[in-house]
């Protein structure tokens, strides 16, 4: 049981909330105290768009404990539009062959159960093939 850790990580896990460095404007994920780009203090929260592309990927058949219920599954390094590369599962893949460079978008899904069927359900980000949702500030067709 890792309740405290799940609780501490909820914002970054549920909504891909990272940081933006107030000094060099680098976008940071996961959030941390010191900006990895300029080495200065970084604490301003930043909501990532959730858009990115597959940088690399692999399929897991022998899953670690806690993830065996959903095996086989595909894990990718996802390069976010804002810069950082993060590790995440891909989901909703059935008809889509995964390719390097494939555009993906963040969804919040059930990651695993912490412990047995009595344990906490752990939710967090995964990525699926981009579904072509118009972005907030794009001109919208009438």
């Amino acid at each position: 049981m890792e309740i405290a850790r799940h609780w501490r990580l909820k914002k970054q896990r549920y909504g891909l909330v990272g940081e933006v460095c107030p000094h060099c404007e680098a976008k940071i994920f996961p959030p941390r105290d010191i900006c990895p780009s300029c080495g200065q203090e970084a604490r301003d929260l930043y909501q990532f768009s959730g858009r990115g592309e597959v940088y690399s990927y692999t399929t897991i058949y022998q899953a670690p404990s806690g993830f065996d219920e959903t095996a086989p599954y595909t894990v990718a390094l996802v390069k976010l539009d804002e810069g950082p590369i993060i590790t995440a599962q891909l989901t909703d893949l059935e008809d889509d062959k995964v390719e390097i460079g494939m555009p993906v978008e963040m969804v919040t899904r059930k990651l695993r159960t912490d412990g047995d069927e009595r344990g906490l359900l752990v939710y967090g980000y995964k990525f699926r093939p981009f579904q072509n949702i118009p972005q907030k500030n794009e001109a919208l067709p009438h």
Binding site: T70, D92, V107, R109
Partner: peptide
């Protein structure tokens, strides 16, 4: 899907 339930589905509908 295996990673979906009322919580995850509600989140996506709410985001829409």
């Amino acid at each position: 899907g295996l990673d979906e339930d009322v919580i995850t589905m509600s989140i996506e509908a709410a985001r829409n």
